[in-house]
Design a protein around this nucleic acid. Structure first.
Lengths: 227, 227
DNA sequence: ATCAGCAATATTGTCAACAATTTTGTTTTT
DNA sequence: AAAAACAAAATTGTTGACAATATTGCTGAT
């Protein structure tokens, strides 16, 4: 979340600042509530968040600047479409960025965060007992995010946030099988251990392999939703 | 340059679309014509580019969304300040991104681009004969950019463009000594060879070392300009 | 029934006027 | 002379009206 978003939200969760509106839209894209290609009509957004038109327009322009929506002259904003090639590129960039984050986190002197990471890990190890796939997906998010935070690099965090939006909903959509969760968690365990032990290079290479494996899964999932 | 910028420029190089204005400002920041902390008064920008106010405002908001300028309520936009810590983070992110780019370029089947890279390299090898530091700096830009292009990853390209803006002018400012240019070029040669030969891992690790070395230099340069 | 063409509507783009706030300059007070 | 208080100017924020374009609905010819 960027700096200007502080507390400018209405009572029931509707944002009022341009930054807040952008975040609101971004979150909906992330959750799959706004799908690629969907048009974001200003008036509709205004109705839903209750903000002024200029604010909504500004929010949309911001999202375009960051590459999440497309704006065509006199046709307005729509959620940017992505295909297999974009997914591939996103995952490759994630390999680089999260690999770096894992390495820097491992090298960092941050015992508190590392304990926190370990805590998430143990929670994930018990996923079958408690909450099932839904719960695991949430912990998975937290785990990745914590590693980004642990690296303490603003730019990496920003880029990662950008990259995670268009693919996030794919991960929540049904295709989380028991087998895949177990595979992913096996990766997680190795990476967590490497970070906690301070083995930067191991953490980086393991993270890369982990994300690379994720790419294959997501491409398969995406193919089934293909038009 | 993003998609909407096509040809909406006035006769003598002044942009008229919001995207074009953003680019115009970004370029001035990159060249050090607008320095960190400098306030970007709307009226001044309007005078210089001859665009309407709403366009200029939109451009500034875009730049804020991307993190290049700060906007404070009723105080307007100013070029975001960066210190040693930001520089460090930028260079670490660059290590990850350009390292990835070098590896993917090496692995790619792009003989034409690779020949082009080799051509730039041979030009850089002759820098003492032709043009001196200024010329080398320009070729250096082209070389790095070509590697990004060679990787063919839109996201990496976008992030790299973002990262290069705040540090670019530091590289042009006087402190390009003969020694440093020779060191840099020695790195370049190794990396170019690795890419042309298709040795992805070598290209990546060499690129990382190269950028890491650059960090040390830039930090030193920056320290001399410290307030 | 289908299609082209036209009218009506909806949506976005642009601009100018006004309000809110900060910044600068001047005067007053000590 | 220095500091405080006030006034003037400059700057940014916001809103609303209108223009430009796209989208939709309708009519009639075939």
């Amino acid at each position: 979340m960027s700096a200007g978003t502080e507390n400018t939200w209405r009572r029931h969760g509707t944002p009022t600042s341009a930054d807040g509106i952008a975040e609101w839209i971004r979150e909906r894209i992330r959750r799959g509530r706004f799908v690629p290609g969907q048009r974001l009509v200003e008036a509709d957004v205004i109705d839903q968040v209750g903000a002024s038109r200029s604010k909504v327009r500004e929010a949309l322009r911001r999202l375009e600047a960051v590459g999440l929506v497309t704006i065509e002259e006199y046709r307005g904003a729509s959620v940017k479409r992505i295909g297999p090639e974009e997914i591939r590129q996103i995952y490759h960039a994630r390999m680089a960025l999260e690999g770096l984050a894992a390495a820097e986190f491992a090298a960092a002197d941050a015992p508190k965060l590392k304990r926190q990471l370990q805590a998430i890990q143990t929670a994930m190890d018990r996923w079958k007992d408690d909450g099932g796939h839904e719960r695991f997906a949430r912990l998975n998010d937290d785990w990745h995010q914590l590693i980004i935070d642990g690296a303490g690099n603003v730019y990496v965090a920003q880029f990662q946030a950008r990259l995670s939006v268009p693919i996030h909903h794919l991960l929540f959509s049904s295709f989380y099988t028991d087998q895949r969760v177990d595979d992913a968690n096996a990766d997680h365990q190795k990476i967590t251990a490497a970070i906690v032990d301070g083995r930067a290079e191991d953490a980086e290479s393991a993270m890369r392999r982990h994300i690379s494996a994720g790419l294959a899964v997501v491409l398969e999932i995406n193919a089934r939703f293909a038009d």
